[in-house]
Simulated scan of single mutants.
Amino acid sequence: MAEDTPVPESGGFLTNIVLEIVQSPLNIALLIAIAFLAFKILKRTHAVPAYHPPEPQLPKLRKDFTIEELKKFDGTQEDGRVLVAVNGNVYDVTKGKRFYGPGGPYSAFAGCDASRGLATFSVACKTDGYDDLSDLNSMEMESVREWEAQFKEKYEYVGRLLRPGEEPTNYSDDEEEEESSSAGNATVAGEGGGDKKKNE
């Protein structure tokens, strides 16, 4: 009886699988596709990330701009700084240079008042002069305000976009420090004065 039991051949199962694959062109195509995908996945996991040197830190800029002054900050100058105006305010968007700098999808806004373009969903600097936006409808103005909120959140505020004939604000770190310290002293003096009256 023991002689009647067939002895399994070693590798018989694997041989059957290989024969099944080789006999069908569809199976061969699927096997090639699987091998290709596996190669791509393994290659991606072992890829060395490219090194991108960090952008140099530019000194903080605080000033108001005329349209002509703003045009100089389109990212093509030596320091590469990019400024964009939205709704009368100027923002330093240099850290978003891949979007707003030369060759970026929004490079038309660099060194410009982007308000009208953002309001009308057009990637173009719509005017060479100061644009008061008075002809925009309420929906377009709401769009400008939404864009401005995003710029405030992401980028550093630099100053105002000046109307023709408007005088710039004189920003000075010394004045800001003096104002904050004098405001603090006034608060302390006010508190002390209140205590003095209570004691009298």
Rank of each mutant, 00 (worst) to 15 (best):
E142I: 02
V144I: 04
E148R: 07
G194T: 03
R163M: 12
E175I: 04
R163I: 02
E166S: 12
L133S: 06
E178L: 10
E191S: 13
Y130P: 04
V123W: 08
V158S: 05
E177K: 15
L162W: 01
N185R: 15
F121V: 03
G184N: 11
V144S: 06
E140H: 09
N185V: 03
K154H: 09
G194E: 04
E140R: 11
G159Q: 00
F151A: 01
Y171A: 08
P164L: 03
G184M: 12
E153Y: 04
D135F: 07
A124P: 00
D132N: 15
E177D: 09
D173T: 03
S134K: 15
M141P: 01
L161V: 01
Y130T: 07
D132T: 05
A189D: 14
S122Q: 14
Y130H: 12
V188K: 15
M141Y: 02
G159I: 00
Y130C: 08
D174M: 14
E142H: 07
S181I: 08
E175A: 11
E176C: 02
F151G: 00
P168C: 10
Y155L: 02
E140K: 13
E167Q: 15
Q150E: 05
V123T: 12
V158M: 06
E142K: 11
G194K: 14
S181E: 10
T127K: 15
L161S: 05
G190N: 14
P168S: 14
F151E: 00
P168L: 10
G193W: 06
D173Q: 12
V123K: 14
Q150C: 04
E167R: 15
D195F: 08
E177N: 09
D135I: 07
E167A: 14
S122Y: 05
E146I: 04
D135M: 12
A183Q: 13
L161I: 02
E179I: 08
R163P: 01
E146T: 08
S143E: 03
G190A: 14
A189V: 09
M141K: 15
L136S: 05
D195R: 14
G184T: 07
D195S: 13
D174T: 12
E153A: 11
E140I: 01
G192H: 09
R163F: 02
S182N: 06
D131V: 02
Q150S: 09
E156R: 12
A183W: 03
D132Y: 02
K154M: 07
V158T: 05
L162I: 02
F121A: 13
G192L: 13
D131H: 08
E191C: 11
A149P: 00
G194Q: 09
G193H: 10
E156Y: 01
E167L: 10
G129E: 11
S180W: 02
D174K: 15
D131K: 11
D132P: 06
G192E: 07
E179P: 00
D135T: 14
A183C: 04
L161W: 01
E167V: 07
E178K: 15
E142Q: 13
F151Q: 00
L161R: 06
E156C: 04
D173Y: 05
E176V: 04
D128S: 14
S138K: 15
S134D: 07
Y171S: 10
V123A: 12
T169L: 10
E140F: 02
P168Q: 12
A149S: 13
L133H: 05
Y171E: 08
E148P: 00
D128T: 10
S180P: 00
R145A: 10
S138F: 03
D195C: 09
E148S: 03
F151K: 01
T169V: 11
T127N: 14
G159S: 04
